[in-house]
């Protein structure tokens, strides 16, 4: 795949920034508005898919190679697990205990602010990273027909 014409390339290089920003917005405001980690992650991945369609697969692989994306995928999942595990060491000592909310933000005034809801925005960030990277990986791997790439993706 060499990519499409110059018109498509120019427009998509503009639009990709907007899509990426929108994805980040959806993730960061996940606890206040509809959306969150999964939806935002899908949007992040879709900006890369747009690039892949416009510029060809090789261009995208130069920017975000398979091993790096796979590392990001794992880091997202590990962050999520770590946030859940931290709950075990604070106060109520319970898995998934929302320790930030309970210990530092136990104040009704903070509702509907960006920094509120304790660990939920952090989990959203981790999930967004995980979903974005893994969807990107799935699409990249499915678009290659080389027989030596192992095609085993989960979630």
């Amino acid at each position: 795949m060499k990519g499409m014409t110059i018109i498509v390339k120019t427009i998509s290089s503009w639009v990709k920034v907007l899509i990426f920003m929108f994805g980040i917005y959806i993730i960061i405001f996940g606890h206040l508005t509809p959306g969150g980690g999964f939806a935002g992650g899908v949007i992040l991945a879709s900006s890369y898919v747009l690039l892949m369609l416009a510029f060809g697969r090789e261009f995208v692989e130069e920017n975000l190679s398979l091993p790096v994306a796979s590392k990001l995928d794992c880091v997202g999942a590990l962050l999520f697990a770590a946030i859940a595990m931290f709950g075990l060491f604070y106060g109520a000592a319970c898995f998934f205990w929302n320790f930030i909310q309970a210990e530092y933000l136990a104040d009704k005034e903070t509702a509907f602010r960006l920094i509120s809801a304790g660990t939920i925005p952090l989990s959203n960030l981790a999930i967004g990273l995980k979903v974005g990277a893994s969807l990107f990986l799935i699409i990249l791997v499915l678009s290659t027909f080389r027989p030596d790439v192992s095609v085993k993706e989960k979630e």
């Binding site: 791997v141 499915l142 085993k152 993706e153 979630e155």
Partner: peptide, 19 residues
């Protein structure tokens, strides 16, 4: 999300079988 995971796996198995 679960459906997405199994769809990706099924499609990849289909592609491999086609190869």
């Amino acid at each position: 999300v679960i459906g997405l995971g199994s769809l990706a796996l099924m499609i990849s198995i289909c592609i491999r079988t086609y190869e």
